[in-house]
Design a protein around this nucleic acid. Structure first.
Length: 878
RNA sequence: GGGAGUUUAGCUCAGCUGGGAGAGCGUCUGCCUUACAAGCAGGAUGUCACAGGUUCGAGCCCUGUAACUCCCACCA
């Protein structure tokens, strides 16, 4: 829209999106500083991984946040949207390791910790901006001056502070527990990082000979290779079959070890053989049994899941190789009783899919129970509310069943655990300092080589990004944040952990609302994923259809919290909507010779002006309310309907005769109304479609620099032209009815016909004469109160307020007309019957609200009067 | 074994606190009407999963059933 008379005929977003975004950035509209005269509205972005590339999930997440932020900004809040990225420990490290291995054939151990970390930082510098630039493409109005990274200096400080605090409170501890070990990533994982999948496996029944006897017991196992770590066989104390075995000694097959038979409640008599091999170092249940019976823990695997020396001749084999080999050996030795098919749940590493090994290991843990309770209470007390509300059930379910959080990772990329050890005396110190000296022997201490779970730093994101632990002005003003926007899949990883962290460390909930959305799926309903290759690249969509079209698609067509399927066809429809807006604006601009944007003198307003202003006023109210209730999709469809159906299809058409008639004194009024309504509608639409709305707003007469810092339209009581709008709608209804009849009779628009309107509302219909001429292809319009002199066998249309006659004799097919009127008669009779049924129901009349009853009465009257007219017409035809 | 969600037009989905079933896409008819064919006008298509219940009135509330999806869970 460079020049008023040189506006491109179709919407071409590539021409202006980047230009507008850069301008917004240069002007500093995204930046926020604490402003005591305004209320704060804060969102922190769910930080995407530095290694990541923008996908549809991000596009959805960012769009929703941007809608809220832009809306609140226009509403006059001091709005801050904090952007940033996450270091994503495992993912990033794995990525860089793979690259180095591929290009140089080296492993991270070849490089050493320091050199390797340099390489990761190089990688981060190179690719860290990529995702940020992609976020900009969809129009995100983040305060880029405040961009943060989970491993930058300030956030690292917060991480240490939290670790030391929790340690001092006894909420962080080190312990040997069964953890999930990924042999591929070579690190411990927390429970949530393990995904369970049903897998077909086997149940091997193996004989364990009883010492000094010919007897044996049979145990059933799905994991025979852990046999080398067995330190007992357990039976249920109530199990009569095995009572006399308890206390006996068994010979562990393939080894020269002896293990006892013990009794423990944990064993289910009904399952398997009723005898369970106990491997405390490789199974969480066995671990607990082992604790109760004071059994030795024998780890039989190395960190890469190859067998260690305890496996004897199988040492060095991979766990599955070993399994195969030992089963063969057991069979040869006659110790294998049988093999059954058995499917069971197997844990897999969320990142690489490798089957995790439960393994006993010394790790750091966060004690969860004391932290979980306040986080549960805060949601119960509505200090933080979920939208949609039902997601709080998921949240409660997690927190109520929570177990301690394993936070140490055997990775190099991440926050190093601030614990130091003295190699001489074994002393340990936890401190925020960079270095530590042994308090006992004065020797320089060695820092723990492990790093923290990435989510440990993410959990602090809402306050660490605002300067915590320092008491900054930002923290004071912007915290707690207003809304957190994220997908339901991330509730256990992140939402929950931010909640208890915020409450524990700042004494306040980190956000007042959690706005949960669903997942973006492919047209078959599958999750979009790299391996399936079914992902749609948001950047390609933006290139082709524009960011606004993508945003529209994503923000509409589904309810909050539900998954959505992504169809390119829907983006096309969205782009078409943008094109519609574009052309309506072109039309407006082409017919404009005013330079001010203001409401015209209300006394000059015509019927259609009042109608569109009322509709506009209604849409202001609806959109505002829906945005306040997080019903973004509903708000957007309010705008879609208003713009397309009301503004374009009706108002522009209604106003054309005036605009094109230079003599018409109300032509200017129409220009003012067009400008006012269009310009304000662009404001309402701006949070959803920021680019096209800015572009159009700039070309219309306006005040201020940019639509994005203009003020949000408000409902205006003086535009509430209810009665005039009703009159206008009578006319519109009649026009539609005439169009309908003409279409049914296949009358081309070029063939004009006379229209005679018989009505009591002559004043109203007289106002509508020009509309009938323009919109209903009328050659001449006569408005009268009497049917005298009208040929009643003409085409006859009955609408609630009038009867309309189209004297087009050559087109009237008598039989068809009778058929149609008979059908209409039937329909009206049906309606009348329904209404009368209702009204004769005493229960309805007595109990339904008076207003509803009155409505029914009016309907009844309307139908009866229409029926009379139809009957009259039928009589005349026959 | 627990928990959650979904079930509405051919497809994908809306339907706010219960008061005559909607949109987009697709489809059919007619239109290149000086903003827009990425368009205009008009049309067709639904036992709102099923069975009960509450109510004057149920797509919406309650109970149960079925199908699908997802999450959680240590039966070796």
């Amino acid at each position: 829209m460079e020049e008023k008379d040189n506006i491109s005929k179709t919407y071409n977003p590539a021409e202006f999106e980047d230009k507008l975004y850069n301008n917004w950035m240069e002007k500093g509209y995204f930046h926020a500083e604490p402003d005591k005269n305004k209320k704060p509205f804060t969102i922190v972005i769910p930080p995407p991984n530095v290694t990541g590339q923008l996908h549809m999930g991000h596009a959805l997440d960012e769009t929703l946040q941007d809608i809220l932020i832009r809306y609140k900004r226009m509403k006059g809040y001091c709005t801050l949207w904090v952007p940033g990225t996450d270091h994503a420990g495992i993912a990033t490290q794995a990525r860089v390791e793979a690259e180095i291995r591929e290009k140089e054939g080296l492993s991270r151990y070849d490089l050493g910790r320091e050199k390797f970390l340099e390489r990761v930082w190089d990688w981060k510098k190179m690719y860290g901006d990529r995702i940020i630039n992609q976020l900009k493409k969809i129009g995100s109005s983040c305060d880029w001056e405040r961009e943060r990274f989970t491993m930058d200096e300030g956030l690292s400080k917060a991480v240490k502070e939290v670790f030391v605090n929790l340690y001092n409170k006894g909420l962080i501890y080190q312990g040997s527990r069964i953890i999930n070990w990924c042999p591929h990533c070579v690190t411990a994982l927390s429970d949530v990082e393990v995904e369970h999948a049903e897998q077909a496996g086997h149940f091997w029944h193996i004989k364990y000979p009883i010492k000094d006897s010919d007897g044996f017991v049979v145990i059933a196992t799905t994991r025979p290779e852990t046999l080398f770590g067995d330190t007992a066989v357990a039976v249920n104390p109530e199990d009569e079959r095995y009572k006399n075995l308890v206390g006996k000694t068994l010979l562990l097959p393939l080894t020269d070890r002896e293990i006892p038979v013990i009794a423990d409640e944990y064993v289910d008599k009904e399952f398997g053989t009723g005898c369970v091999k106990i491997t405390p170092a490789h199974d969480p249940n066995d671990f607990e049994v082992g604790q109760r019976h004071n059994l030795e823990q024998i780890k039989v695997m190395n960190d890469d899941a190859t067998m260690n020396a305890y496996a004897g001749k199988y040492e060095g084999m991979d766990r599955y190789e070993c399994r195969k080999a030992m089963i063969e050996d057991l069979e040869k030795a006659g110790l294998l009783v049988k093999v059954e098919d058995h499917s069971h749940n197997v844990g897999q590493c969320q990142r690489c899919g490798t089957t995790v090994e439960p393994i006993v290991s010394k790790q750091w843990f966060v004690k969860m129970k004391p932290l979980a309770q306040p986080a549960i209470d805060a949601v119960k007390n509505k200090e933080t509310e979920f939208v949609p509300e039902h997601f709080k059930k998921v949240y409660f379910h997690w927190l109520e069943n929570i177990r301690d959080w394993c936070i140490s990772r055997q990775l190099w990329w991440g926050h190093r655990i601030p614990a130091f050890y003295c190699d001489d005396c074994g002393e340990m110190v936890v401190t925020k300092e960079e270095k530590a000296v042994c308090p006992k022997c004065g020797k320089e201490m060695r820092q723990d080589s492990d790093t923290l779970d990435t989510w440990f730093s993410s959990a602090l994101w809402p306050f660490s990004t605002l300067g915590w632990p320092d008491k900054t002005e930002d923290l004071e003003y912007f915290y707690p944040t207003s809304v957190l926007v994220t997908g339901y899949d991330i509730i256990p990883f992140w939402v929950m952990r931010m909640m208890f962290s915020g409450i524990e460390h700042t004494g306040e909930v980190p956000f007042k609302k959690v706005f949960i959305h669903g997942l973006v799926r492919d047209p078959q309903g599958r999750k979009m994923s790299k391996s399936l290759g079914n992902g749609v690249d948001p950047l390609e969509i933006i290139d082709k259809y524009g960011a606004d079209a993508l945003r529209f698609t994503i923000a509409t067509g589904n309810a909050p919290g539900n998954d959505m399927r992504f169809y390119t066809e829907r983006v096309e429809a969205s782009r078409n909507f943008a094109n519609k807006i574009w052309n309506a604006s072109r039309f407006t601009l082409m017919n404009l010779d005013i330079t001010e944007n203001k409401l015209p003198d209300l006394a000059d307003l015509q019927l259609e002006d009042k109608w569109i202003l009322l509709k506009y006023n209604d849409v202001v109210k609806a959109v505002t309310e829906n945005l306040d209730n997080f019903e973004l999709g509903v708000a957007l469809s309010n705008l879609y309907d208003f713009i397309w159906d009301n503004f374009c299809d009706w108002y522009i058409e209604l106003v054309k005769p005036r605009l094109f008639d230079k003599e018409n004194p109300t032509a200017k009024t129409a220009q003012y109304v067009l400008t006012y309504v269009l310009s304000n509608t662009m404001k309402l639409l701006h949070p959803f479609m920021p680019f096209i709305t800015e572009e159009i707003w700039q070309h219309l007469p306006h005040e201020g620099e940019s639509i994005m810092i203009s003020s949000w339209p408000e409902y205006d009581e003086k535009l509430n032209f209810r009665q005039e709008a009703e009159s206008m709608e009578l006319i519109m209804h009649a026009i539609s009815a005439v169009r309908n009849r003409r279409a049914e009779m296949n009358v081309p628009p070029s063939k004009k016909a006379k229209v005679i309107i018989v009505t009591d509302e002559t004043e109203v219909y007289s106002c509508g004469i020009s509309f009938f001429e323009k919109l209903a292809s009328a050659s001449e319009v006569e408005v009268t109160t009497s049917k005298d002199g009208i040929d009643l066998s003409a085409v006859h249309i009955v609408v609630p307020s009038a009867e309309i006659f189209l004297p087009m004799e050559e087109l009237v097919d008598r039989d068809k007309e009778i058929e149609r009127l008979t059908a209409e008669k039937k329909r009206l009779e049906g309606e009348i019957k329904r209404v009368e049924g209702k009204l004769s129901n005493k229960g309805f009349v007595d109990k339904a609200p008076a207003q509803v009853v009155e409505q029914e009465r009016e309907k009844g009257e309307k139908y009866r009067s229409m029926l009379d007219k139809v009957l009259e017409s039928l009589t005349a035809l026959q």
